[in-house]
Design a protein around this nucleic acid. Structure first.
Length: 290
DNA sequence: AAGATTGTTGCTTA
DNA sequence: TTAAGCAACAATCT
């Protein structure tokens, strides 16, 4: 469930806690989540120098090793930072709003991967459904991976002109699947796709080619606006997320259509519809979105 | 108790 | 060549 804003929130949280901490051990508890991982590796006494993000993918850079640790949380992955002897013992840095997966350091049922630091702190990867992917790869492989991603919606690359360039070759594509396509624009998932389309007053069943110039311009603006706002609010899907000040992700209160099936539209009171599109539950207001 | 859920890949069909 | 649709992946909740 974590989309760009949630992954960015996780990245910011992690940077504050694990950078420059000496690593003492890497534990693999479930091999299924390993994607591309060497049998032998040495990260003892190494540490994380910086954490990057592309789309929904986290990229961990080491100080000594040239290898890159890649973590994709997919749908139910959660990163939990556990401090050994501090006031804040647990810090849930990712995951979803499902109450059943309230995670803590002692809940080992869904623990898949773990990094232990020399001072006793731990970074745990929990994942109920085991879809998460963890890789440890060379810089070359990372470059190949990065090429699969489209433009970053919060980068300066995401200009109106570049957006036109992306959209002009996809005229026959459905607008919702266009937004969800990671190779075109990186990081938008189901929640923000619905919110962006509501904000742009565009019906999700429309074809890209049917959009007017004005609608395309509006859509471009709203992709940036919604994603930026969601990052500011530290994401949506963090029922249990707490940052160091004890604040949780608050975009939930800003949602206009997602999860509001059969509820009145916040703008016009018309009933929000829910349909299946691009294989995903899609929420929209048939009055506001034409 | 069947169906829905979420992200991504991969297959099939048009 | 392109895109839509669907199953698969695994676990859990409704």
């Amino acid at each position: 469930m974590p989309e760009l804003p949630e992954v960015e929130t996780i990245r910011n949280g992690l940077r504050r806690f694990i950078l420059n901490q000496k690593i003492s051990k890497v534990e693999i508890l479930d091999k299924k989540i390993l994607n591309d991982f060497p049998k032998k590796f040495n990260l003892l006494d190494d540490c994380f120098l910086e954490i990057d993000r592309v789309g929904k993918l986290l990229i961990f850079n080491f100080k000594k090793s040239s290898l890159k640790l890649l973590i994709h949380l997919r749908m139910t992955g959660q990163l939990v930072f556990c401090q050994k002897n501090k006031k804040i013992k647990k810090l849930i840095l990712g995951g979803h709003s499902d109450r059943s997966t309230k995670i803590n350091c002692q809940n080992l049922k869904h623990l898949r991967f773990k990094i232990i630091f020399k001072n006793g702190d731990e970074l745990n990867l929990n994942d109920t459904r085991r879809f998460a992917k963890v890789s440890l790869v060379s810089p070359d492989v990372l470059l190949l991976e990065k090429k699969k991603f489209g433009i970053e919606p919060l980068s300066s690359e995401f200009s109106y002109l570049n957006f036109l360039e992306i959209i002009k070759n996809k005229k026959s594509k459905n607008i919702k699947s266009f937004l969800l396509d990671q190779s075109l624009i990186a990081g938008i998932g189901n929640i923000y796709a619905d919110e962006i389309l509501f904000s742009s007053k565009i019906n999700p069943i429309r074809n890209v080619g049917s959009l007017s110039k004005l609608e395309v311009a509006d859509l471009h603006k709203n992709i940036n606006k919604i994603i930026k706002l969601a990052v500011d609010k530290k994401g949506t899907t963090f029922s249990d997320y707490v940052d160091i000040e004890g604040k949780s992700g608050s975009f939930l209160g800003f949602l206009q259509v997602y999860g509001r099936d059969a509820l009145p539209c916040k703008k016009c009171k018309n009933t929000i519809k829910k349909i299946k599109l691009a294989g995903r539950g899609t929420h929209y207001c048939s009055f506001c979105q034409k």
